[in-house]
Design a protein around this nucleic acid. Structure first.
Ligand SMILES: NC(=O)c1ccc[n+]([C@@H]2O[C@H](COP(=O)([O-])OP(=O)(O)OC[C@H]3O[C@@H](n4cnc5c(N)ncnc54)[C@H](O)[C@@H]3O)[C@@H](O)[C@H]2O)c1
Ligand SMILES: NC(=O)c1ccc[n+]([C@@H]2O[C@H](COP(=O)([O-])OP(=O)(O)OC[C@H]3O[C@@H](n4cnc5c(N)ncnc54)[C@H](O)[C@@H]3O)[C@@H](O)[C@H]2O)c1
Lengths: 222, 222
DNA sequence: AAATAATTGTTAATAAAATAACATTGTTAT
DNA sequence: ATAACAATGTTATTTTATTAACAATTATTT
């Protein structure tokens, strides 16, 4: 029999949406709202209310018929699922434009997930602090990751250094990697990897803009 | 009968992968390679060779049995599909940390897609040029978008200004939007929208790291 | 010349995700 | 009271995406 507290078969897409729901819920809470309907969440996220209810069904949360979902309760439940009880520590490697943008943005946003170290090879950056995050020499990566028990790393070094950096991080015991360089990296199967490239997203936008334009012109063949 | 040159039913995921294939192919080309096998592309992209061949089948490209795919030809075909013949112009709104990181990264990478204008409200930034991209006052958005025929915009303003910025961009005639603020925006159906939030990605990584850890400990219930 | 191996291209099967359908339950209006 | 309504929760269906299976082709080896 399926246990209500077993969350390891949740669809990947549901995990991503739960994170987004929480973001929206936190915003609503801060505006003094206490309850929310599935169609309200749906509108914010550009999805259907059924999708929302299905996701919430999968995590075993029930709302009330006329008031909808209790925002605080739901935030807390999503936290139980996504967050690690003890919290997870994150490092960012490459304190350049992108690394700084991410640190600025993320700092203090989630208390169970915090960027606690940055690494760089540029002597001018080593020793500085960025939004409370100290920048260490990249040569100390392994030492500090082990000492602090850092489990997740974000890679924002120049593309040509991506794979070497990834190898060092894996050797240091990292369990999850988020690679923002345009160079796909290889990791052993026990490391969870996500990669993101803005050019892919932008080209996707461009493709659909092109398609809409051709459609308007009545052209259906390239 | 289905025309070989009709690309409007390609799966969304295939579009994203084509962009990634091209990125990998360009790299291989620059290293002097002329042909590539499906399993080589697959290894780079962390997918299966079958997936690659299926995608290429969908776009109607054939390789040769013992040499694989002709890299130049394939790059060119992917270009025919993704790129607009005349090229598309892109604007970036909000020339802060993230905006600058994206401009730096993207500049000159794709010749059929170019960021040609930035907008900001900060007088210190207006009038400057960043990597060849001029920064205009946000009050001139509509004027310049119309004059230049800009069709795509990237939003990197503070979250509280996201929806107003989006509205102005839509009013100015933008056809595609890429929203990097954590505030989901609403657009009419004729505008293609993509949103990306790094926190969602990072939380997904955190969730799977947590799961792997619990698994190792033999815990299957939270 | 035959067997083997490596590769492509395509169809078939499976899996994952989204959507639709609908029963259920309170609430409000008549 | 009863009907109409507006929600939730769940099952069934459909759609989308991935993976498997395999025939066809050509180079290489025996
Ligand atoms: N995914 C995206 O959407 C996206 C967007 C922008 C940039 N990028 C990529 O992100 C990376 C960083 O971009 P950026 O604009 O911040 O570049 P940047 O040059 O400003 O920053 C790179 C930093 O990494 C440091 N560095 C170099 N080698 C290192 C090493 N081995 N270990 C640690 N630090 C090292 C450099 O000193 C520098 O501070 C690039 O690969 C770029 O292509 C990706
Ligand atoms: N999606 C992600 O992964 C991600 C990562 C980092 C930051 N962000 C978000 O991106 C946005 C920008 O982050 P940042 O670190 O660059 O912030 P920033 O403060 O450095 O930059 C914002 C810029 O926008 C300008 N601006 C303000 N109002 C404007 C308006 N109405 N029109 C035009 N320009 C305007 C400001 O003058 C500033 O230059 C924020 O919303 C942040 O939350 C998202």
């Amino acid at each position: 029999m399926e246990d209500r507290g077993t969350f390891d078969h949740l669809p990947h897409k549901t995990i991503a949406r739960l994170s987004q729901y929480r973001r929206a819920l936190l915003l609503c809470l801060s505006r003094g709202k206490s309850h929310i309907f599935s169609h309200e969440i749906a509108t914010i996220q550009h999805i259907t209310p059924v999708q929302v209810r299905r996701d919430l069904m999968l995590i075993g949360y029930s709302g009330t018929l006329r008031k909808g979902y209790n925002i605080k309760e739901l935030i807390s439940l999503i936290g139980n699922i996504i967050d690690s009880e003890e919290g997870l520590k994150v490092a960012i490697v490459g304190m350049g434009n992108l690394g700084r943008a991410l640190i600025n943005y993320f700092s203090g946003k989630r208390h169970k997930l915090s960027i606690i170290a940055g690494f760089d090879t540029n002597p001018d950056k080593i020793g500085n602090t960025m939004n409370g995050v100290p920048c260490y020499s990249a040569t100390r990566m392994r030492e500090i990751i082990e000492k602090e028990g850092i489990q997740i790393a974000i890679i924002t070094v120049p593309a040509e250094n991506a794979s070497q950096t990834a190898n060092e991080l894996v050797a240091a015991g990292i369990k999850g990697l988020l690679n923002y360089t345009p160079k796909p990296i290889d990791v052993p199967e026990y490391v969870y990897l996500e990669e993101y490239d803005m050019i892919t997203t932008l080209e996707k936008v461009a493709f659909y803009v092109k398609m809409k334009t051709l459609e308007e012109k009545g052209i259906t063949t390239i």
